[in-house]
């Protein structure tokens, strides 16, 4: 087993999300037009936390939801079917709104491509922005995040593990060599 290198502690994750929430409010002066949509699994609690922080900053209740991309993936052919799809739950009209996709790690960009397609089948947002806690590079598609918690240089074979208290019992992000 190889050693894990911490890239964000629990405290740093909290501070990083607070900064990202500020950036979101700066870029979107009218917060009432925002919908935060977390990509299942770990994007969902991150979207909820960002919504909480935006509420603290602006007093605006920003709606948040979850998006499952299982049926939109481009690797179904090679990986086979996955019977554990989560539930897409966006209880708001997204038409014309600024929809901010939220995910824990941005890597090849393929999940985000799938997420954009999934969103377009639900409605027609005015614009889509992207917020990620960690950007580890190695993009395979022309996708660029609008809000980045932290850039971390990684080797392709390394694995980035994000743990969140809601899903994993603790807040912690690390890079594991040679995964």
């Amino acid at each position: 087993m190889t050693a894990a290198k911490t890239v964000l502690s629990a405290q740093e994750i909290g501070r990083t999300l607070a900064r990202m929430a500020h950036e979101i409010t700066e870029k979107n002066p009218d917060c009432s037009q925002i919908i935060l949509v977390g990509i299942i699994t770990r994007g969902v609690p991150l979207a909820r936390r960002l919504a909480d922080k935006i509420k603290t900053i602006t007093g605006v209740d920003v709606p948040h939801g979850s998006l499952d991309i299982t049926f939109y993936r481009d690797d179904i052919q090679s990986k086979g079917p996955d019977l554990n799809a989560g539930r897409t739950d966006i209880n708001h009209d997204i038409n014309g709104k600024t929809l901010i996709l939220v995910d824990d790690v941005l890597f090849t960009g393929r999940s985000i491509r799938a997420a954009i397609d999934a969103v377009m089948d639900i409605g027609r947002p005015g614009r889509i922005q992207l917020a990620v806690l960690l950007d580890r590079g190695h993009r395979e598609l022309p996708i660029r995040p609008d809000y980045i918690g932290k850039n971390i240089p990684t080797a392709r074979g390394e694995r980035v593990r994000v743990k969140l208290s809601e899903t994993d019992g603790e807040d912690h992000a690390s890079v594991v060599e040679g995964g």
Partner: peptide, 23 residues
């Protein structure tokens, strides 16, 4: 059980305006 879980998600798809996924 996996088929049940998946079928519930496809039921949601059938209730959307765009009742199609590219799967």
């Amino acid at each position: 059980m996996g088929l049940l879980n998946t079928a519930y998600k496809f039921k949601d798809v059938s209730e959307r305006e765009i009742k199609k996924v590219p799967t």
